[in-house]
């Protein structure tokens, strides 16, 4: 765990110092699971006045391996509507998968990527096959080979 915990300790110190607007740390107890809230700052009507909660799960090999990042669904934190976000909170984003991950990414950069993924979205909809995926998926997000069918969103 040394590698992951030292790196996360560095990140945490930086996060406690400052975070970009619209990103807040909720909890970071230990180096296995962190919660962060994100908001979309521009006036995108799909996400206006809403806050979304992200759960980060780190393996001992972080940052060589990507963290598992999902949106949580709670009473006041919905899963954002997006053609690449399933209603169970699983996110289809190349940088979070084995293929697109780079160990120079970090918690802050991931939050910013997700923020901008929401900012640029105009489709108030779920991915194709959402219901079936949510009902049948038993795999961990990182093991899913998403088919990046539409790179325009």
């Amino acid at each position: 765990m040394a590698f992951a915990s030292k790196r996360l300790g560095k990140e945490l110190a930086k996060i406690h110092g400052s975070l970009p607007p619209g990103i807040t740390l909720v909890t970071a107890e230990g180096f296995q699971e962190w919660l962060l809230d994100i908001q979309v700052l521009d006036a995108n009507p799909i996400y206006m006045n809403k806050t979304f909660r992200l759960k980060f799960k780190f393996s001992p090999s972080y940052p060589i391996e990507p963290p598992e990042v999902t949106f949580l669904n709670t009473a006041d934190r919905p899963v954002p509507m997006h053609p690449h976000i399933y209603s169970n909170g699983i996110i289809c984003l190349d940088l979070l998968g084995q293929q697109g991950w780079s160990p120079v990414q970090n918690v802050e950069s991931i939050c910013m990527s997700l923020q901008s993924m929401l900012t640029g979205n105009t489709k108030n909809e779920r991915p194709e096959g959402d219901e079936q995926f949510v009902a049948s998926n038993r795999r961990r997000p990182r093991d899913i080979d998403f088919y990046y069918h539409d790179n325009t969103v």
Partner: peptide, 14 residues
Amino acid sequence: CGICQVHFDGTCPK
């Protein structure tokens, strides 16, 4: 170092 985020004058985490 972009991977461990430790200064180059410091060591890797190991």
